[in-house]
Amino acid sequence: MTNTHVDYQLSQLDQLEAESIHIFREVAAEFEKPVLMFSGGKDSIVMLRLAEKAFFPAKLPFPLLQVDTGLDFDEVLSTRDSWVERLGARMIVATIDEAIKAGHVVDDGKTSRNRMQIGTLLGAIEENGFTAAFGGGRRDEEKARAKERVYSHRDDFGQWDPKNQRPELWSLYNGRIHAGEHMRIFPLSNWTELDIWSYIHREQIEIPSIYFAHEREVIERDGMLLSVGPEIQPKGGEKIERKLVRFRTVGDRTQTGCVESEASDTAAIIEEIAVARVTERGATRGDDRFSEAAMEDRKKEGYF
């Protein structure tokens, strides 16, 4: 039994944890068919940890849904499997290839796999009749996300209408939806990147090894370091280099860059972030670079 709170103060990290747990329980109580969107990245793993705490010792009252791009890092998949096994969770994997077959997405040869996740995800939500989908988005990630409610309403087409969001007062969340609509739920809304890492550090949470410094063959393209593999081969004057790197986000391996780093444990990563001068997405996500409002556009379409 612990008795550390003699002054009845809750640290900010504990307050964030309490808020997120409240959100998980609220959704589990009020929605017929919730699902947790699991990417295998650090944010969705922190979500899993919070969900574990919210319902302990019961199993999660909802399944996990992963969109398999076919381009996920092996390290991410193995961490996923170990979490799923430990929690005894139910896992649904929606693949882009199946979504193409089912007609949820069109492969026109120009659209990136990352972008095709949208149709795949929406197809899986519709097919399974999910009414609420937890996502690991944080408001500190990007300026359009900074505007989003914790309960974010999606219409029949899975679209977000940023100019017409429902008011969201206190911690009284409104989960009403019509048939065919669903709600995106963001339990990590108020967490910053530093909060996430401090929590991983404190709770000693298992995350994919590619977040930590390791040697890897990379090429530099458009100012990003991309991992050499079947899809990424040098072209033009690009040359392969072996570098000590780590990933700050994990996604589609053709789109996600890594950064040079010596940070081999969570404390070292926190040190790196505490002095970082470039945001997480700016550094490593090719997808957001197209236009200034790229993220908003993709969110409107139903991207997580």
Partner: peptide, 17 residues
């Protein structure tokens, strides 16, 4: 204690406004 550990402790224990 490393800078990182310190930063983690600060992040964890700060209060909230």
């Amino acid at each position: 204690t490393t800078v990182g550990e310190e930063a983690a402790a600060v992040t964890e224990n700060a209060d909230l406004l």
